[in-house]
Write a protein that binds this DNA or RNA. Sequence first.
DNA 1: GTCTATAACGAGATAGAC
DNA 2: GTCTATCTCGTTATAGAC
Lengths: 184, 184
Amino acid sequence: MDTRTRALNLSRHYLQTLGFNGFSFQTIADALGIKKASLHYHFASKEDLGLALLEEYEKSYKDWTRKIESLSAQKKLEQMLVVFYKMALDENKICPSGVLCSDFNTLPKNMKKQLLKFHEFQRTWLKETLRQGVQEKAFRKDLNIDATADLLLASIQGGLQMARLRGESETFKAFTKNLLKNLS
Amino acid sequence: MDTRTRALNLSRHYLQTLGFNGFSFQTIADALGIKKASLHYHFASKEDLGLALLEEYEKSYKDWTRKIESLSAQKKLEQMLVVFYKMALDENKICPSGVLCSDFNTLPKNMKKQLLKFHEFQRTWLKETLRQGVQEKAFRKDLNIDATADLLLASIQGGLQMARLRGESETFKAFTKNLLKNLS
DNA sequence: GTCTATAACGAGATAGAC
DNA sequence: GTCTATCTCGTTATAGAC
């Protein structure tokens, strides 16, 4: 694997455990076994690194939605919860949006824009999936699509953070069990 | 008002807008019109400042619960949502727990402990209030107290962050309208 | 692509004068 | 209680050799 890719993988890890301001080029360079000056060959600035991270998150989310596009809405949402539960299991990671919301006001403009774009993609997909569920008669006909999508996104984001706080990923697991109950 | 109190007020503001690592002694000193060395007279270290902040958050939350203790459970929860909605209205602030969850792994041990204590206080109060609502027959008899408390806390925390991301505090307002619907 | 060296800055923190 | 002065460290970032 090339250095750039390895650097991005490490950055993703540190972003979700330490926050965007919690790791530095030094952190990544040390983990790679190269000098931090060499990292600047791959990413001119930390903003560049942040943007690359966000683009990668969006891309892999898109790939994931394509991979499961033939499933029922119910199954899709269950799979979505599994994705986030795996984060909680992996060193109490929290979701990238959650990380960057806290630091939001300190982020470069382009990162803010890219983060919003990522969020809107997730949100749109979720709304479409909820609509699919209504059509499949798996979810209630009068389901408030917008409000439900927001509630799911917010509670997943907050739930991961609460699980970290308490140090028990089971908090999040128990949590997810109830999230989809109110849809039908 | 004495300098220490003014410093704490400013710190609360910057914590909830810029994050714990997003402001420095310099930031507070500038806003106060004194030198940052002088701040160290009031707070020996930034950890000290952070602990004082957390103690103050807990104290004011306790005072607030005492002030509304004679209300019905339904009214209490409505008031709680108002508290958080006011945060969203005030420069898209997010809640202190949400801020510190992202930076959690970079916090001094004592701050982690104090944050957990604050969280457990909020959670316990919320569970008691839900139980009160069941007794008052305002909420369903079979309400899952633990799961509901966690869902409310997580979605409020995540909801404030989402509102900041989108730059519209109305996101959070719309959101809260539906939060209490599933209780009865 | 990676290195050494260095610049420029801001952070937390302390000593000691007033 | 606030000041000046200073220390030490970590940060992002760049120039130029290999």
